[in-house]
Each structure stands twice: as structure tokens, then as C-alpha cells.
């Protein structure tokens, strides 16, 4: 009798575990499916010409170089604005600010910024940067718009990384005659850096893949040359993908999937770099 109930329980437990494993697998499935599908459909389009030539024939032939370079510039521009600002804000919140109504407001603002739909950022960027500040539809305006969208991600990740550095390091450094800033620069920041970098890359990766924020602020429908200055408009991978998938009749299937493959490789590549940095830092961490 007892034995039977035990094996019953055992069976239920096993069933439960199997079910949970299945659910976990289901979450992996879509990403695997998407990546595999895009690779198989997009791989035939891959060629040196596709990656390094200008589009020809109304984008139906040739390469996607301006879109690749454009996305690279936009990501770089976003990094230039959002990384220093984001890290500085995180240092303020984690190391200097006391808990009071002001920091509470800042935190609420950060959380809410992260929740705003990206198309709203696009409209806001158009109003502020393109029209009011007269930057025009440009890499500058688009980078600034993407920066605002990326900031909350960078701030939250950096603040978390800074807070993870043991308080005892700070106390010891101060007790040895260090100032607050010396302590931050020599101990806290270096220790938090891998975590900060991971957050930065994940934030930029999201910016690289966005379409809506650059739609009205910097993306060009078709521009068969490389941008020459930050005030030029540019093609970009996500927007180019949207254009050739919906706006160009008789578009070769291959080029669409080839473009998707390049975009996904760009974003996944950044993701892999972030993962490598994180796991290396964990192995080396001395606390």
C-alpha cells in the first residue's frame, strides 16, 4: 500500500518535470525556427557583392552596403550619446544619490521611458531633433532618438552592475584615505565594467534592430551612396527590410531574406559578444 503511493507520487513528479522541460523547450523553439528559416532562405543571397555593393535596379539587384554601413553608423552614434550619459546617470544613482523624492522620480521616469512604444520615440525625435533643432532627417537626429530610447536600458543595467560591487570594497577604500570619486574610479567602476558592458551591448543591439524611431528621423527609402556626414540621411537594415518587403513590387525573395540574415547576424553577433564578456568576467571575478 505504502509502496504503491510512493511510486504514484514518483510518477506524478516525473510527469511534472517532463511538462516543465517541455514548456522550457517550447520557448527555445521559435527562436531556433526563425533563425534556421532565415538562414536557409537567406544563405543563397550571400555573396561578396551582396555585402559590398550598392543596390541596383530599384533595389531588386546588387548589394545592401549602404544599409549595412547606415546601421553601423546609427549604432555608433547611439553609443556616443547614450553610453557616457547612461553610465554617468547610473553612477549618480548608485553612488551619490540618497534615497529621496528626487531619486524616486528619476527611477519612475526611467521605468516609464522603457515602456514607451518605439514609434512614439520616432515622432518625438522628429518633432525635437528634425524640426525644432533643424537637424533634418539625418544620422544625427536618428542617433539622438535611438539614444533616448536606449538610455533606460543602459542606466538600469549599469546601476545594477554598480550595486553588485560589494559595499565592503567602498568602505575599505574610504578608510584608506580614498575620496568617493577615487573609490569609484579605481575599484567600483572596473569591477562593474563587465556588467555595464553587457547592458550597453544589449541596449545598442535593440537600437540597431529598431525601425520605428528612425522612420521619421533619419532613414532613407533609397539612397544608393554612403552617407558623408552626420547630417546626411542614411539607409538602415531594419528599414530597408521593411521597404523591400512591402514597398517594392516584384522583389526577389532571396534579397529580402538575405537582408534579414545580415540584420540578425549583426544583432546576434553583438549578443554573443555580450555573453562572452559576461562569462569571462564571472570566471575572473574576485568576490
Amino acid at each position: 500500500m505504502k509502496r504503491a503511493s510512493f511510486s504514484n507520487r514518483d510518477l506524478i513528479q516525473r510527469l511534472g518535470f517532463s511538462l516543465l522541460t517541455l514548456v522550457a523547450l517550447v520557448t527555445v523553439l521559435p527562436i531556433l525556427a526563425v533563425v534556421m528559416y532565415i538562414i536557409t532562405e537567406g544563405a543563397p543571397a550571400m555573396s561578396w557583392e551582396f555585402l559590398t555593393a550598392m543596390p541596383r535596379d530599384g533595389m531588386r539587384a546588387g548589394g545592401i552596403l549602404p544599409a549595412i554601413v547606415g546601421t553601423f553608423y546609427l549604432t555608433l552614434g547611439t553609443a556616443i550619446f547614450s553610453v557616457p550619459l547612461g553610465i554617468a546617470a547610473a553612477i549618480y544613482l548608485s553612488e551619490y544619490a540618497r534615497e529621496n523624492w528626487l531619486t524616486r522620480i528619476i527611477r519612475i521616469a526611467i521605468i516609464n521611458l522603457a515602456g514607451i512604444p518605439s514609434v512614439v520615440y520616432g515622432l518625438f525625435g522628429m518633432g525635437l531633433f528634425v524640426i525644432f533643432l533643424k537637424f533634418g532627417t539625418s544620422i544625427l537626429a536618428a542617433s539622438l532618438t535611438l539614444s533616448i530610447m536606449t538610455l533606460p536600458v543602459i542606466i538600469s543595467a549599469s546601476e545594477e552592475a554598480l550595486r553588485a560591487v560589494p559595499q565592503a570594497f567602498r568602505t575599505v577604500s574610504i578608510s584608506l584615505g580614498g575620496t568617493r570619486w577615487q573609490t569609484i574610479r579605481r575599484i567600483v567602476l572596473p569591477q562593474a565594467l563587465p556588467g555595464i558592458l553587457t547592458g550597453v551591448i544589449l541596449g545598442l543591439e535593440r537600437a540597431a534592430g529598431e525601425t520605428a524611431p528612425i522612420l521619421f528621423t533619419g532613414a532613407a527609402f533609397f539612397l544608393p551612396r554612403l552617407p558623408g556626414s552626420p547630417l546626411d540621411a542614411t539607409m538602415a537594415l531594419p528599414y530597408h527590410l521593411f521597404v523591400i518587403s512591402t514597398q517594392v513590387p516584384e522583389m526577389p525573395f532571396q534579397i529580402q531574406y538575405g537582408t534579414a540574415l545580415v540584420l540578425i547576424a549583426f544583432v546576434l553577433g553583438m549578443n554573443i559578444i555580450a555573453t562572452v564578456i559576461r562569462s569571462r568576467a564571472r570566471a575572473k571575478r574576485q568576490w
Partner: peptide, 19 residues
């Protein structure tokens, strides 16, 4: 206080070596 802390050193309960 910086000069003071150089003159008055402190050892804590838990050894905290810097990384």
C-alpha cells in the same frame, strides 16, 4: 578627513582584500 584616515588606519572584522 582624508588626512585623518591616513593617520588613523582601520582593520575590519571580515578581511576585505581589494580585487
Amino acid at each position: 578627513v582624508i588626512a585623518l584616515r591616513r593617520k588613523v588606519g582601520m582593520v575590519f572584522a571580515r578581511p576585505v582584500v581589494l580585487p
